[in-house]
Amino acid sequence: MTAVTEAPAATAGQQLTFAKALTTALADAMEADPRVVVFGEDVGPLGGVFRITDGLTRRFGEERCFDTPLAESGIVGMAVGMAMNGMKPVVEMQFDAFAYPAFEQVVSHVAKMRNRTKGHVSLPMVIRIPYGGGIGGVEHHCDSSEAYYAHTPGLTVLAPATVADAYAMLREAIEYPDPVVFLEPKKLYWSKDTVELDALRAPGEPRIGRAVIAREGTDATLITYGPSMPTALAAADAAAAEGRSLQVVDLRSLVPFDDETVTAAVRSTGRAVVVAEASGFASVASEIVARVQERCFHSLAAPVRRVTGFDIPFPAPKLEKYHLPGVDRILDAVDDLQWED
């Protein structure tokens, strides 16, 4: 009689979209901690306009995942109070530009409460914001608003670009003692990857404040985050075909900023281009250039370049392709890095 051999334990990963990774992270966090509550506009029975909260009301009940009246300042302001009183609110702003009515609450209270009270009151809350362009959205649906938040001391600002980071960083953000602005690149919601959820669920290295080398390379470093990551990787592919080896750094955490990883990366190649969708003037990209210039001056063979959105309001859908950093524009910038000996 032949022994029945057992199929090997399913250690292979599973295919997940970025969106599903976020949904799973929310569900796992709610399962793990009854203090986690999710609320916002259309996040209840509809599951959010991007379906990130899909099924949470059904599974956890209306007290744990609920629709609010339509008012962003109300949503964030109420989250502040709930966080003060022992809960862990995770709120959704429906789109980047629709978070602006909450700006007062975010900059005047969410960001400042810990400092104002000398640490007596901390606000463990997460503000999730679908952000960025590339989805053909009409006006107010495509803003890259990271600079407003990153410029505000007291806010932790994350912008994951991979499915694994979507899961792990959202879990980490919910556990974090301080308020997190969690920027979800809309155009990556439907991107897929194979991840090992069980491994991600186990405690691991922190990702907040840690950049990663997304691709090794020796000739120049592309520094980017969030929605621009796939573009940067595509540029690196295209450059490789032309014989140039580009390293890609995925920041994923804008605040805190990982100077160490970025600095080491740029020193290793001596050239750098920062890529971001947001308008370049007074931007996160500008901050990165400044930090690199300050720390790597003697290792640089050329000035650090930026490839960003233009300094214009985000264009209408049919024109966004001219605005968003694309592979060609990135390669043009790389070509500009004074390669002549």
């Binding site: 339509l70 629709f98 602006y100 009409v138 006006e139 209408a316 859908p317 024109l319």
Partner: peptide, 25 residues
């Protein structure tokens, strides 16, 4: 023009005294 995605608004508000169609509620 707004909804076809070629610009954010496609008329001169003063001509018929009609403001742009507002999205931020």
């Amino acid at each position: 023009e707004l909804l076809r995605g070629s610009w954010h608004s496609g008329y001169d508000p003063y001509e018929h005294k009609v403001a742009t169609q507002a999205t931020p509620l």
